[in-house]
């Protein structure tokens, strides 16, 4: 089978809206979007507090957080696997090899990323604001929601970065999800499996969609920043 045939077959699968393909894409989105939402709720305020508060060991925490941005997905998968396995501390919930386990793993993977990037963005905004808020007598901790809101444009691109990392990683979801057909198969694990099996059509179709996703995420990120430039449209009275 040559390359052209594979690509052609892949497009046929995509445009015929193959039910297996759609199911896998749908699960990928379900898992990764859930992870991003949870990570955002935890990570963005965490990053903001680290950006705005002054406490002992803050510098070390920032270094650790930045280092955690590069967590290898397989290591996260392994750790979550150990936690969720029958003998593990969370074994009683019987979550291993379920989409929930995959959401947990991806959340662990991208929460540090979102927290670290949010910290940078919030810190930039807060540097401009800090003295004015001190003058108003508003304590930094009370200003956290304000600054998160005012940094919303930058934070949008952070969430997109987190989503991009979640949907494209394979190591963590493979280990804790197990790549079970009709249950825990997502785009990346399917590509790995089908390629190994030699069924390149489906793998290539999913690969193309992933590439498209990447393009879309970056285009969105760019659009968000462009809208924020003139920004008049963002103002709400």
């Amino acid at each position: 089978m040559n390359f052209g045939d594979v690509i052609g077959q892949a497009f046929r699968l995509i445009f015929s809206l193959d039910p297996d393909l759609l199911e896998i894409i749908g699960r990928s989105f379900q898992v990764s979007l859930s992870s991003v939402v949870i990570s955002a709720v935890v990570g963005a305020p965490l990053g903001a507090v680290i950006a705005m508060a002054r406490f002992r060991g803050r510098g070390a925490l920032v270094v650790v957080l930045n280092a955690l941005m590069g967590l290898p997905p397989v290591v996260v998968g392994l750790l979550v696997y150990v936690m969720l396995s029958r003998a593990g501390p969370l074994g009683v919930f019987n979550l291993l090899f379920s989409p929930t386990a995959m959401i947990i793993a991806q959340t662990v993977l991208i929460t540090p990323l979102i927290a670290a990037l949010s910290r940078q963005i919030v810190e930039d905004v807060w540097q401009g604001y800090a003295e004015q808020f001190r003058s108003w007598g508003i304590r930094p901790i009370r200003a956290v929601p304000t600054v998160l809101w005012d940094a919303r444009v930058g934070l949008m691109t952070v969430l997109l970065a987190g989503f991009g990392r979640a949907i494209s990683e394979v190591g963590a979801v493979m280990i804790v999800g197990g790549n079970i057909d009709h249950l825990t198969r997502v785009m990346t694990t399917t590509i790995a499996l089908e390629t190994a099996k030699g069924d390149l059509d489906l793998a290539m179709a999913l690969g193309l969609i992933l590439l498209l996703m990447s393009l879309l995420v970056n285009a969105l990120s760019h659009a968000v920043r462009r809208v924020a430039g003139p920004a008049a449209s963002l103002a709400r009275v």
């Binding site: 003295e131 004015q132 003058s135 108003w136 007598g137 009370r142 304000t146 005012d150 103002a235």
Partner: peptide
């Protein structure tokens, strides 16, 4: 009660009206 105006005005990334309203609410 004191207020201060800085050499480089610190404006929130919000509308003009929201900038005036914010400290009224926060204080």
């Amino acid at each position: 009660r004191q207020a201060m105006v800085f050499d480089r005005p610190v404006l929130l990334y919000r509308s003009v009206a929201a900038n005036i309203r914010y400290p009224l609410e926060a204080t």
